[in-house]
Design a binder for these strands. Sequence first.
DNA 1: CCTAATTTGCTCTCGCCGAGAACATAATTG
DNA 2: CAATTATGTTCTCGGCGAGAGCAAATTAGG
Lengths: 393, 393
Amino acid sequence: MTGATTSGELRPHNLARLLRAAHDGAGRATRSELTRGLGLSRGAAAVLVADLAEARLAEERPAPQRARGRPTAILGPHPEGPLALAVDLREDAWTIATAEIGGDLTVREERPHPGNPPEIALGGLAAAIDRHLTELGSRVVGVGVALPGPIRDGRVVDIPHLSWRDVPAADILRADATPIFLGNDAALAGLAEARRGALRGVAVGLHFHVDFDLGGTLLVDGSPLRGARGTTGEVGHMPLGGSDLPCDCGAIGCWALQVGANALLRAMGIPVEPARGRAEALRILDGAAAGDPRCAAALDEVARAFGAGTAALVNALDPQRVTLSGLGVRLHEEAADTFQAAYETGLMAFRRDEPPPVLPAALGGDATLVGASELAFDAFLTPEGLTAWQAAR
Amino acid sequence: MTGATTSGELRPHNLARLLRAAHDGAGRATRSELTRGLGLSRGAAAVLVADLAEARLAEERPAPQRARGRPTAILGPHPEGPLALAVDLREDAWTIATAEIGGDLTVREERPHPGNPPEIALGGLAAAIDRHLTELGSRVVGVGVALPGPIRDGRVVDIPHLSWRDVPAADILRADATPIFLGNDAALAGLAEARRGALRGVAVGLHFHVDFDLGGTLLVDGSPLRGARGTTGEVGHMPLGGSDLPCDCGAIGCWALQVGANALLRAMGIPVEPARGRAEALRILDGAAAGDPRCAAALDEVARAFGAGTAALVNALDPQRVTLSGLGVRLHEEAADTFQAAYETGLMAFRRDEPPPVLPAALGGDATLVGASELAFDAFLTPEGLTAWQAAR
DNA sequence: CCTAATTTGCTCTCGCCGAGAACATAATTG
DNA sequence: CAATTATGTTCTCGGCGAGAGCAAATTAGG
């Protein structure tokens, strides 16, 4: 959003700002709060709200009264308003949900998939997406898809755990003219955290999602840092831990190898198989909690690598806060001292006075879906997006 | 610049856009190019140019004729227009220059300083800044200062090579009400490169400045990535090279230790002293070029660490292009094969098809001063900055 | 050297937009 | 029940850029 240049662009621009603010307010923001927050006059707000209602983009409903004075209304989703289709594709299953303005999710379908070949796995998902698009009609303004691997140019994905290479996921999944957006699952979980979780309002935040291995993103002003080719936040693929293991990604000694379920197995001397071992890893964590010294040693080793790498990234990127999701929460909590010691040792001296706090993510398992829906809405909640919607009604 | 919200904000907003575009055009952009580029109507442009001229912010001068049609004019600096004071403070000397709209530099003073204690070194500089501010009068809209160390909260600096800790540089240097902005020298060199050098027009660029050690920044849309505390781009302080040397910064194994003049000395077994050894390092490079095997081995060791670390950061940050300044240019050129091999080995497989090019910076020794002036102008070339200037005349 | 073509600058009118004021409305408070 | 308070509604007003029509200043071509 570069901002309006002509008086004619002012209205669509402010319309988008208002609807975006209502969306960010999670369907709880009142008209008077929004008006004040955006620096609008009450007159301008009245016109904009009327426009939104007429275009079926939003609707006002009564707000619980707080103080004295004439009551205001909550600006929330319209029953026939825009929807984002959010898709979370994991190694073994996928979920499809819808989100309305304000971010409320409704899960619509959830199914396992074979994983390979990618055409089959994605083909089934594409058919399901198509079905939901048909059912929902023109209300769907975009499809956001979370994928567990790096994405190039917004189209192509590699998923090492499934041996997917150069899979043109966007082309396979694209149903009709509905725009489709792909995002890395860890980046989208971070995005969700930045918009509706523990990184809300944080100018620079770092999020790590730990599952089989580790993914992460830097969130700048509420959006993941986008690289030149759209590959966000592969911070796990730096050799931060001095290991010399070869990584599926093709590089050597990647930090991602040292943090996650697979790293726990490796530390216990258990062979690592693709896309297995999540249950085994949980058992190791439980063992450590129960006092098993071998499990505790493995947890310690992983937590140390986790803390040290976090410190390195904090040194380089200077975030205000670090959040964790997936296995990361337990790794951090159940080896808190080890993590903290490695974290503080790795920090530059001047950062040790006030190290950025490391916190569990506020959103639960829905984070990835929330992020996927935000990705789709981001393209819609713009002057252009809303103008197109208005023109189509 | 969030963009205009009201019709009254439109004019200052477009005024700032126009002057910013003229500045970015390095005093070579013509009115018709600017008008087209900004999507303004010719009528609007006429009014804006008249406003700029009346406020003594810019001035039109005849442009060399190119095609047929009525000739247009170049929108360049006004002889009584705004100036930025650019200061480059190095370990042993400082330079003061002015920059006008368009970015043209005029060096005004250059002096050695004792280095310690910081109050004395900065005190002399502060007096000089004060003198120049008095001479130049109200034309100076901001002071940009480049410093060879990390900066916190825009005020405080640590310079490990000089043993400066927690030095409130902004407070010591602040003369009168003229705003002062501090920036890390490597970050400012990168900023200059992004605005007027080899990273111009690049959405995501990575810049490394190599001197005694290595500093770097990520340039996103022409600005250095700013962390939460304003500490930009300490990418050198990640343990990317598997070393276990303690770093002045307080962490261990920092990549910065493995790349730079000091790293060359260390690789030759020569003891490293603070802020010395630049000449010695150049001698090692010359020796390597002349065929001395010990020098060549040292260069190779450093180039390998340089290439490997660059690959790690490219993996994580996905830049479109990487630029080098300072010693980095020679390290890269004179051990090109070693660097390239380490670089490509460290990349994730999918990046090896089209690795981001690594290029020498286009700006010479002025880069830091240019960056400092851009820093000062960035705060001025805004609707608020220009409105204040207009109000003061 | 002259004319047509071309591009840009200037000026004026017009429609659009948000500010702001005045008023209406709907709640709380005591 | 009346005073108070905060918000929504409506209307006027000033400011802004678009766009059209015209003027100006150059080149291309004969």
